[in-house]
Design a protein around this nucleic acid. Sequence first.
DNA 1: TTACATACCTAAGTTTCTTAGGTGTGTAAG
DNA 2: CTTACACACCTAAGAAACTTAGGTATGTAA
Lengths: 112, 112
Amino acid sequence: MAVNNELFKGTLQTIILNLLSENERMYGYEITHKVKSITQGELLLKEGALYPALHKLEAEGLLETSTEVVDNRLRKYYSLSPEGEKEVVNKLQEARDFIQNLQLLLNLKPSF
Amino acid sequence: MAVNNELFKGTLQTIILNLLSENERMYGYEITHKVKSITQGELLLKEGALYPALHKLEAEGLLETSTEVVDNRLRKYYSLSPEGEKEVVNKLQEARDFIQNLQLLLNLKPSF
DNA sequence: TTACATACCTAAGTTTCTTAGGTGTGTAAG
DNA sequence: CTTACACACCTAAGAAACTTAGGTATGTAA
């Protein structure tokens, strides 16, 4: 992670699940680039963090996979399982509460 | 931590420094209760997390301490050092950027 | 043939936090 | 009078997430 490394700890699962709720299916390498482009390079999602996280979410039954060969290279596509669809709703609500509480604790609320 | 445990990882230093920038001086036990009341019980800052964090910030020169005995009990008051005063500005800006990026990644921005 | 993008992966180490204690004082309940 | 709880500090062991630093393999541009 580029700028504020430490703070993003714990948000990775939520970020992955949300991207997949918007994009139907994505593969790992694509996710790292998507995160980079959305944050304009401020958050660099490391592969060493991403792949274990994807495997864990799959093992928990929140993600499903299908592999394809594109241009003679393997792609492992991930998509939300039915449980993943439910979980992303919870995770997003938790994220909203988290941001709310953090803004309260840091007096960042009334900036706009 | 009570509700969303995982997400607050990495935010503790910023929370401590910001509380001390608002309150001149605080002691550990007071900080845990302050955090609890601000978040209405949603974030329970554990002593096992707080005290090591305070010691680390002190070792880094960001905090200064003075001990007092009140009602025959020891209190160790923490306050920002000059470097701490500078660092809290950086940390808060990082937190703003973090929230901004997280909202972008999670599509939470245009809710109000 | 060197370098870099694409695309996957893992193991070792670091850091942070949780769990689960320990020490000691003061006060309220029974 | 002893049990429980609030106050107030502390630490050690373990869990978990992340970083670092690799490895494998293909395709393309210099």
